[in-house]
C-alpha cells in the first residue's frame, strides 16, 4: 500500500469539502425563504432518522427493540438513559433469543 497516504489525504479533502460546503453555499445568502429555513431546521431530525432507519429492519428483533426502547426512553428522560436502557435490552434479548 504505497499510495495509502495519498489516498487517505484525498479522502480527508473530500470529507472537509462536505463539511465546509453547506456553510460556504449558505453563507452567500442573506434572508432565507421560510421554506428553505424550515428545511434547514429539519436537518437534524431528517438526516439522523435516515441514518438510523435501516438498523430497525436489517439486524433482528433484539436490535429493532433496542432502537425503539432507546428512542422512547430518550423521549421521556435523556439520551444517556436511552443508550443505557437500550444496551441492557439489546444484551438481554440477544441472550434470550440466541
Amino acid at each position: 500500500m504505497d499510495n495509502s497516504v495519498g489516498l487517505i489525504l484525498a479522502c480527508a479533502a473530500a470529507t472537509y469539502l462536505t463539511r465546509i460546503g453547506g456553510y460556504a453555499i449558505l453563507s452567500r445568502f442573506g434572508r432565507l425563504h421560510h421554506r428553505v429555513a424550515a428545511a434547514l431546521d429539519a436537518v437534524p431530525t431528517a438526516v439522523l432518522t435516515a441514518l438510523v432507519a435501516p438498523s430497525l429492519l436489517t439486524k433482528g428483533p433484539a436490535e429493532a427493540t433496542a432502537i425503539i426502547v432507546s428512542g422512547l426512553v430518550a423521549l421521556r428522560s435523556s439520551v444517556t438513559h436511552g443508550v443505557a436502557v437500550g444496551l441492557i435490552v439489546l444484551i438481554g434479548l440477544r441472550l434470550l433469543l440466541a
Binding site: 437534524p44 431530525t45 438526516v47 439522523l48 425503539i68 423521549l75
Partner: peptide, 25 residues
C-alpha cells in the same frame, strides 16, 4: 444506532417532528 435513535428524539419539540420522522424513515 441506539445512540442515534436517542439523539433523534432530542429534537421532538421541533415543528412537524413526527411527519418528518416518518417520511425520512
Amino acid at each position: 444506532p441506539i445512540y442515534f435513535a436517542g439523539l433523534v428524539m432530542g429534537f421532538h419539540k421541533r415543528p412537524r417532528f413526527l411527519p418528518i420522522l416518518l417520511i425520512s424513515t
